[in-house]
Design a protein around this nucleic acid. Structure first.
Lengths: 198, 198
DNA sequence: ATAAGAACGAAACGTATAGTATCGTAATAG
DNA sequence: CTATTACGATACTATACGTTTCGTTCTTAT
């Protein structure tokens, strides 16, 4: 039971690593192009240049396939400069850059829209999504320990305040998101909207 | 050409207002239950208790049907108390209440997820969505004119800062959103996260 | 060498469901 | 009362999904 999970049979053709990667890549591409509902195993097979049986041999359905493909996308990159403002800007900027180099920007809304109707996907994907925010949470906790956070601030709300504007633009903005907005967003979130005189 | 668009034929059975409403209601229900992609005209017809032809007689495809159904959902309710903090809390609280009394909470993520892949829907729906935020924009503009907004604050970012946390919870939170979080969100956004000493 | 075993890509199969067209019936205007 | 239009129901046709089957290719062990 505790032996190697990968190699169990002594003979026969081994599974192709190349096909594995091609399948996951094709899944991400199609997820970005057509969304979760319109994604079909047949489409993935064609795009990846493999037979459908090759996919069903590894994943029982498109659901775990999508979850594994999404899990391979890069997450927030940790930053610990000793200063909250710099940490936030650094993390958000590098994350926004991923929107250009990966299908993240289209995959995220697509999956989010599906979560509401698909409890099974929700159950599999929510832990993954939650884990990806940890670098942000940790940066805020470090700032709190350094005394950088004002009294009575809920860290969850603080995190949502920083991420929220980007999420709104991602979901409803339509166009690409410039990394230039990170500065104003973080500055505004840290300082507040109101005049200090109020 | 410039005559009445509604009544053009002098004889024959008039279109049923009841069927019209039933179709739009069924569309919203199904949109919330199964999402945009899985929504079918056939399903809407069954749920509404009408024939498919009755739907196709009025809308050429499910796309404009969905747009019209969504447009009927209530928008942000204007508030002008003379104080930004009160306006924001009032508007957001009443909007969150709509999440319980309408399918808004599930329809919004569902449509947002589709916008990324469906340019046609995007074109039809984005103006509608933008229009729904106007009460928020106007409240911020009034506050700016009263001098309540700090120097150098971008009003778009300010708006996103207030709406963002709710959007994040709506899309990724899973569960229901308590109106109790409106207070902390607005207070944090107005005052800022950081200690004033920094 | 060679036989056995497993995975490979391609393609055939059966099913489900979409959108369209057609039916007899019901409701309104002249 | 007759003409006209909308109504709900249903039959039709085509597409395309997930599943399974097929001959072939690759790897290991004898």
């Amino acid at each position: 039971m505790s032996s190697n999970l990968e190699k169990e049979s002594s003979a026969g053709r081994p599974r192709s690593e190349e096909a594995h990667r091609a399948i996951l890549d094709a899944t991400l591409q199609l997820l970005a192009e057509v969304g979760f509902s319109a994604l079909t195993v047949e489409g993935v097979a064609t795009r990846a240049g493999v037979g459908k049986a090759t996919i069903y041999r590894r994943w029982p359905s498109k659901l775990p396939l999508v979850v594994e493909a999404f899990s391979q996308l890069p997450a927030l990159e940790e930053s610990d400069t000793g200063n909250l403002r710099d940490d936030l800007k650094k993390m958000l900027r590098s994350y926004l850059n991923l929107f250009n180099s990966t299908p993240l920007a289209t995959v995220l809304p697509s999956l989010a829209g599906e979560l509401a109707h698909n409890p099974e996907l929700s159950e599999l994907l929510n832990p993954v999504i939650r884990g990806r925010r940890q670098p942000l949470t940790r940066a805020l906790e470090r700032a709190r320990d350094r005394g950088e956070i004002a009294e009575g601030i809920d860290l969850d709300i603080a995190a949502d305040l920083v991420v929220g504007p980007i999420a709104v633009r991602l979901f409803f903005g339509g166009g690409p998101i410039s990394p230039k907005i990170v500065g104003p967003i973080v500055d505004t979130a840290l300082r507040g909207i109101q005049t200090s005189a109020v």
